[in-house]
Amino acid sequence: MTPGEPLVRWDWIFSHLGDVGQRLGEHLLLTGIAIGIGFVLSLCLAQLVRSWSWLYGPITWITGVLYTIPSLALFAFLIPITGLSRLTAEIGLVSYTLLIMTRNIVAGLQAVPADVRESAIGMGYTDRQLLWRIEMPLALPVILAGVRVATTTTIGLTTVTALIGQGGLGYFILEGILRFFSTPLLVGAFLSIALAVAVDSALVLYQRLVTPWAR
């Protein structure tokens, strides 16, 4: 960006490899925690919907509003309460995963064919056995599709948390912007995209492994 400066300065990259590795790990951790907590919460919400179907409207409405609020605004809301902390970042990241994952878990469970459910109950499955042995495995492709969307989205969003002092790879992007230095900017952007693609591919592979019947 500075005239005369090459777009990518490889010497900077090589001298910052340790830093890059650390930020990459940080990024994965931030994303992993958000997806993990988000998934458990979504499972609970989906269970609520399974027991009381009228809750589906209110739950999608609330998670929908959370999802619609831009990330920067959500972080700004939280800063007066939880400060510039990892907690602020995680609350924001988790709240964005809820809509997608809850909706997909509910949709996946509802898509279990009625005849399969009926014959399972007719053969004497208890409610819990029905859920964990029949409904969840069958809903797995749809659930995993939701996890994939949530994960790639969260990996992108995690960069924004650089603005509140977290951010993993977002750190490099912000550094690049603030210092008018294209190398860290490109490193951050490229690694963030690469990470999203890699994790998404891993999830596709995992889905193929655990759903042999769908092949």
């Binding site: 064919p113 005849d115 399969v116 014959s119 053969m123 208890t126 029949i134 759903t211």
Partner: peptide, 30 residues
Amino acid sequence: AVELRRRIGYVIQQVGLFPHQTIAENVATV
């Protein structure tokens, strides 16, 4: 009710085989 159903065979028109289980696993259900 659950114990009762395990002692009664049940077949429906759409069969209701579990698509995520092999034939052997399906037959072994009860």
